[in-house]
């Protein structure tokens, strides 16, 4: 069982090594990186490449670690008790399974994605330490012990909003997805748009990397924005000269809405374009 990237996802060598190490030893893999570099997509691609079911646990600021294991719905049991419902005798009727329980008892080996773990409370990762380490936990209400039949492949993503505790980090493999360089980016584009012309890609990438270099941008465009923009460019079927003729007069790229997601960034580019026009007029 080896991960070599998929038809729809370009994995760099270092990413492959990290994924394979995590999948072989069944330790969690912690993925960090700039937004839009494909952290979340990765889990889906790993699942597809191993033919495993994907179980997604999207973490929010209100998510508690316990919710991933199970929840005991005491309120509805209280209500049922008042209504004289017979179900109330069996407490397990009110235990709702969480994503980790689901992953532990899945018949086929699953890939469990814990997405954006840093969104949750600072204690969240600590509360999952033993559960992720031993892949088992107790249900206090019923006295049942849930043990993973086979250790799931766990992928955890983080956007660096909070530091994760050391004890948690020690149990993970770590990979930082760096922003793809040009050749990797060309491979990514080729995977998504097999019939795109080489010249369009070249011109578009020139503009794209230039934009990323502009100092003072609030939100740099990332891979996902580039792909959206290329899709638009292909759809609109713009003549190539429009992309090429961007020397001084038109600094703002065509269909920039897909690349620049921030009003201030668009203003910045308009200002730059204005300045270069004025500078061009004088020189």
């Amino acid at each position: 069982m080896r991960f070599e990237g998929t038809a729809g996802y370009v994995a760099t060598d270092d990413l492959k090594v990290a994924v394979n190490a995590a999948a072989t030893l069944r330790r969690p893999l912690l993925i960090k990186g700039e937004p839009g570099t494909g952290k979340t997509v990765l889990a889906g691609e790993i699942a597809r490449s191993f033919g495993a079911p994907l179980i997604e646990w999207n973490v929010k600021s209100t998510t508690k670690a316990q919710q991933g294991l199970y929840e005991y719905d005491a309120v509805s049991r209280l209500r049922d008790g008042q209504l004289g419902d017979a179900r109330v005798r069996d407490i397990s009727n009110y235990i709702r399974r969480g994503k980790m329980w689901e992953a532990f008892t899945s018949p086929a080996l699953p890939v469990l994605l814990i997405d954006e773990i840093d969104k949750a409370d600072i204690e969240f990762p600590n509360d999952l330490l033993t559960e992720l380490d031993r892949m088992e936990f107790d249900v206090y209400e019923t006295g049942e012990r849930v043990i993973a039949a086979q250790r799931p492949i766990v992928i955890i993503t983080s956007n660096n909003e909070k530091d994760l505790p050391d004890a948690f980090l020690r149990r993970c493999f770590f990979h930082y997805i760096k922003f793809p360089d040009r050749s990797t980016m060309e491979a990514i584009v080729a995977v998504h748009f097999p019939d795109i012309t080489g010249q369009l890609v070249r011109e578009a990438l020139n503009i794209f990397y230039d934009i990323r270099e502009v100092p003072g941008m609030k939100k740099k465009p990332s891979t996902s924005e580039l792909l959206d923009w290329l899709k638009l460019l292909m759809h609109e079927d713009l003549p190539l000269d429009v992309l090429k003729s961007r020397d001084t007069k038109t600094l703002i790229p065509p269909l920039h809405g897909a690349l620049l997601k921030n009003e201030q960034d668009v203003m910045l580019f308009e200002k730059l374009a204005f300045m270069s026009r004025r500078g061009g007029g004088q020189g």
Binding site: D14, V17, A21, F174, H175, Y176
Partner: peptide
């Protein structure tokens, strides 16, 4: 490959 693997094991902070 050894470099990638050891990096993934030892370093947990970019």
């Amino acid at each position: 490959q050894f470099y990638y693997l050891s990096r993934s094991c030892y370093v947990k902070d970019e």
